[in-house]
Design a protein around this nucleic acid. Structure first.
Length: 574
RNA sequence: GGCCCCGUAGCUCAGCUGGAUAGAGCGACCGCCUCCUAAGCGGUAGGUCACAGGUUCAAAUCCUGUCGGGGUCACCA
């Protein structure tokens, strides 16, 4: 049930009837006619722009259209008043029955209310995190993980068939560096002094890996050149890193459907096939790139390379796919990976990158556009930096020293639920301040707590009601504006889900939940002043049952929303 | 220099396929607990939506340009 689409249908039908009656000319495009919540509640419950949108094509004054439309709309029992306002808005106020119906719908099908069929079962692949398997996940990855996971849940809630996927960059030079770094820790485990040369990974998370290598190989690798151990240790260390990463993600509540290995692309012909596909489309050629405009790199020299004509699909320059030694550049397996995603039959692809990868957006979009002949849209969402604070004091991280703050640090200190909610209290492309102390604060200044407190209050009322022997009923009685405001906010939920899903912006869910909680807290406090607004009516279980329906519906929607965000609703706060 | 993101109240940020008098929280000020959790609520004050053009019945939103902040920039991933 989506009240806004219901009322929009009503408006569209009325406009069609006006056309049939000769009031409006035929052939009007009604696509731009909207029914939305007005910004100001004083304007009513819903507003439609129909008269303004149609005035020009119909050759009529907005007011005339609006008044004729109003006359038809008020004939519907759901519409109490329809008033022309401003430049031609038609403000609608809806009957209390309608709001009661919203509450009933939520209570009748708690798992379904707000779910959308807009996805229509279309297959969407959400690739996220995809951190190099060379160390633990840090805060930046955490944000990407939370964002991607919530986005995936949101899309599933909106009716898409979603795959969560992680691309393991285990095919490049950085996993060689990992192997060498692990080897030094292995030497350390064997009692030798490790030599962590410049460029190796210094983090002590490799210490246990070194010990594990010793446990497996004894001292048989000591003193041998890397040609004897590089392949084996690369695989060994990479597997250990991925175990750690999977475990970190699991701590955060993220479960991938598929881990896709870059290395697995090699030797299968997939890269060659992807490039051949582009070649067949005339998009591969030998050529020399112009130097970058503006500042000239010190060591730049003209060089003939094998290039992908990404400019044919919107990129700024063509991109090399082979290195001068004949090997593939990192871009080639990326192309092959997306070629594989396309050929797996997805209707849409989403990649979640850190903002520092913004330079790859155009070339990846160009690749997918070329590979799918423009059929499969690729949306790339960038997550901005996370700045860490404690009690307002920023603290520094140094990747060189290996002392960056890890996902596990964050989750261990504040918990997965708080981490996830806070990470979604900003738009993905806005920087996020994360204060370890503040996010645990139990006050209304902390949105996590504020929303959880609302649901805790709902549960509190339900416990009290059970003690008093109230038999729950799904038919609410709404008699005050404070109640209607809450019901109206509940009515916006299905609409909001669709907007958030369409824009790929799960943060909208978090903001909505905050607003809903706010309306609910306001209603709660009205009960302090007005006895009839209390959910529990003294000694009158029948009246209580009618009053409790609304907060129960609030609980339904907050639970559903937190579910999308991957946050566990609390039972109570003590 | 090219490209990408950002610029909205003193601060941190929302703002719906373009809608009406641009919202919330913090901070400031004034109020509300005999009563379902005051861990909360109500009110007051605070704005050239960076700037300038353009499109439109209508622009914080779309387009162009300028300014300011951040990111990124061939044979690393």
């Amino acid at each position: 049930m989506n009240l806004f689409t219901d009322i929009r249908s009503l408006v569209i039908d009325a406009l069609a009837a006006m056309t049939d009656a000769g009031v409006l000319p035929g052939g009007l495009d009604l696509g731009n006619v909207t029914v939305e919540p007005p910004r100001d509640a004083l304007h009513g419950d819903m507003a439609t722009n129909a008269a303004m949108v149609l005035a020009k094509p119909a050759g009529m004054k907005p007011r005339d259209i609006a008044e004729a439309l109003a006359a038809r709309l008020v004939a519907d029992p759901r519409i109490v008043t329809a008033e022309v306002a401003g430049p031609g808005f038609l403000n609608l106020s809806l009957a209390d029955d309608v709001w009661a119906g919203v509450v009933e719908a939520a209570l009748a099908a708690p798992d379904a209310y707000g779910r959308s069929s807009m996805g229509a079962g279309r297959k969407v692949n959400v690739e996220f995190v995809s951190a190099n398997p060379t160390g633990p996940l840090h805060v930046g990855h955490t944000r990407g993980a939370v964002f991607g996971d919530a986005l995936a849940s949101l899309l599933a809630y909106a009716g898409y068939d979603v795959t969560r996927e992680y691309y393991i960059n285990d095919g490049g030079a950085q996993v060689d560096v990992l192997a060498r770094s692990a080897f030094e820790r292995y030497r350390e485990a064997c009692g030798q002094a490790p030599e962590i040369a410049e460029g190796l990974y210094p983090g002590d998370y490799l210490v246990p890996v070194g010990e594990a290598i010793k446990a497996k190989y004894g001292d048989s690798l000591l003193g041998k050149g890397e040609e004897h151990w590089l392949d084996e240790l690369r695989e060994f260390a990479t597997e250990r890193m991925m175990e750690m990463i999977r475990s970190d993600l699991s701590e955060l509540g993220v479960e991938m459907d598929l881990y896709y290995s870059e290395k697995s692309l090699y030797g299968t012909g997939l890269i060659e096939a992807a490039i051949a596909d582009l070649d067949a489309k005339g998009l591969i050629y030998r050529g020399t790139l112009e130097p970058p405009k503006g500042k000239m790199p010190e060591d730049w020299e003209p060089r003939e390379q094998t290039l992908f004509r990404s400019t044919a699909h919107g990129d700024d320059v063509d991109r090399p796919i082979r290195k001068s030694d004949g090997g593939w550049t990192y871009f080639a397996p990326d192309i092959a990976y997306h070629y594989d995603k396309v050929s797996r039959g997805y209707d849409a692809l989403i990649d979640v990158f850190g903002a520092d990868h913004s330079g790859y957006v155009k070339r990846m979009k160009a690749a997918v556009s070329a590979l799918s002949d423009g059929r499969v849209p690729l949306d790339i969402k960038l997550t901005q930096l996370v700045r860490l604070f404690r009690d307002g004091e920023p603290f520094k991280m140094s990747k060189r020293a290996g002392n960056f703050v890890t996902l596990r640090d964050v989750v261990d200190q504040v918990g997965a639920d708080v981490t996830r909610f806070v990470m979604l209290t900003r738009k993905n492309d806005a920087p996020l301040d994360f204060d370890f102390a503040r996010v645990l604060e139990q006050s209304k200044d902390n949105p996590v707590f504020y929303v959880q407190y609302a649901i805790a209050r709902v549960n509190s009322v339900l416990r009290k009601a059970a003690e008093q022997g109230v038999v729950l009923r799904d038919t609410p009685k709404l008699e005050d504006d404070a109640e209607r405001i809450v019901a109206r906010k509940l009515a916006e939920w299905p609409r909001l889900v669709e907007i958030a899903a369409r824009t790929h912006e799960p943060h909208r869910i978090a903001f909505y939940l905050y607003d809903l909680a706010s309306d609910f807290h306001a209603l709660w406090n009205r009960g302090n002043e007005k006895q009839h607004l209390r959910f529990l009516q003294d000694g009158n279980t029948a009246a209580s049952a009618e009053k409790i329906a609304l907060p129960r519906a609030v609980g339904v929607v907050i639970s559903a929303g937190l579910g999308i965000l991957g946050v566990t609703p609390v039972e109570e706060m003590r």
